[in-house]
Design a binder for these strands. Sequence first.
DNA 1: CTACACCTCAAACGTATGTTTCAAACATGC
DNA 2: GCATGTTTGAAACATACGTTTGAGGTGTAG
Lengths: 226, 226
Amino acid sequence: MAQSDTVDRILDAAEELFAERGFSETSLRMITSEARVNLAAVNYHFGSKNALIHAVFARFLTPFSATLEKAFDELEKQCDGQAPTLNQTLWALTESAVRMPQRNEKGISIFMRLLGLAYTQSQGHLRKFLEEEYSQPFRRFMRLLKEATPQLTSVDRYWRIQFMLGATAFTMSSSDALRGILQNKLGVETTVQEIAARLVPFLAAGMQAQDKMLVSPNLSGSFTVA
Amino acid sequence: MAQSDTVDRILDAAEELFAERGFSETSLRMITSEARVNLAAVNYHFGSKNALIHAVFARFLTPFSATLEKAFDELEKQCDGQAPTLNQTLWALTESAVRMPQRNEKGISIFMRLLGLAYTQSQGHLRKFLEEEYSQPFRRFMRLLKEATPQLTSVDRYWRIQFMLGATAFTMSSSDALRGILQNKLGVETTVQEIAARLVPFLAAGMQAQDKMLVSPNLSGSFTVA
DNA sequence: CTACACCTCAAACGTATGTTTCAAACATGC
DNA sequence: GCATGTTTGAAACATACGTTTGAGGTGTAG
């Protein structure tokens, strides 16, 4: 076997368990037992639990980040000076995520769930790590979004981007469960690609919504449009 | 003092710390120390940490649930047989949340963050508790959404509701952090009410989006509209 | 005043966690 | 085949957690 597949076995088990249960709720003993590896191996190979968490993210985020940059390059080249549209930008991102080589059939949903957790669980070290390592494609995506929605104020755009992130991370992070419920209730099978195909128009429409709701509606429970 | 304000002090401290750091990351010792109360008081008054979590939720969810039912009653009465619109339904929910009597200025944002955490952190006991105690207003909200979007297929509606839930839960679960970032970057103060006022139109627009994206876009990265 | 239910307190319990240790096993270059 | 650096193994370590205990305090009713 190549140099220590112990490292990969740990990463595989950690990735799955983290996605399933969160970071604090997953102990090193669960991970090493799932990976059939000695407990000390984690601290030997990674140094600490936090460093292991970073390594799990780096393993999929680094290639994804490269793929994404290429997709953006191509998109901008193709648009030839003009700003890519919102739909094009969103789709470039989605396509890059879906087309990433997956280690297994759950790959993309684990990927999404981890990203969601990274945002939600207030692990300070993780936020810092992600910001330091992957700010470039993130900023580029933000710039593309900005150019694709020049009609929005900075504040509006900021919040709508958060809404998009939320809808995406949440849905993708529990896509397995949600697909199962749909299968039970309506007898419909759904692929991750189909979810993405439904999500992007939803996001684009929300992002370009023109309503502006006043903070204090009248008492009747209806609302006012500016 | 009335019957043991220890109970309230524990609930206050727990609520704030849970919202700030999550459930697993908040120890009973942090809570009792913040509440200036003996460690054993939690187990004496609530029985266990999980029961304390339930009590924290029940304290704001029970009155909120009642307020929400009243708001839906009024909305339906006012619509007089006709189905309330999507905007009316969403706003009835938002208004009920925002208008709840708050214990302090952070009340509503703590409230929101806890709800987000309830969805995100996969605490099995919490999910079960919430489903058992508060399924009625939830189901009613779902029914209103269905009646307000008759043009959607069941499958489309199902996924778009998930997207709405995601955007809401995710944003609210990190609303403090997001507000802080916005404050730093753009020097803008934001209230939870304003976030809600931005969120509702986003959700309504996404919910009513008419685009339908084909699963396989052409290779150029652009997309096709049916 | 006594009795009794209610509450608080400091201390301890048992368990689980992340991390360290150090000897044994292994692989690799000479 | 020996020496060297790398990896694994079982065990222990220190710490933190949720929970329990039992003695003490407090207020109220008889």
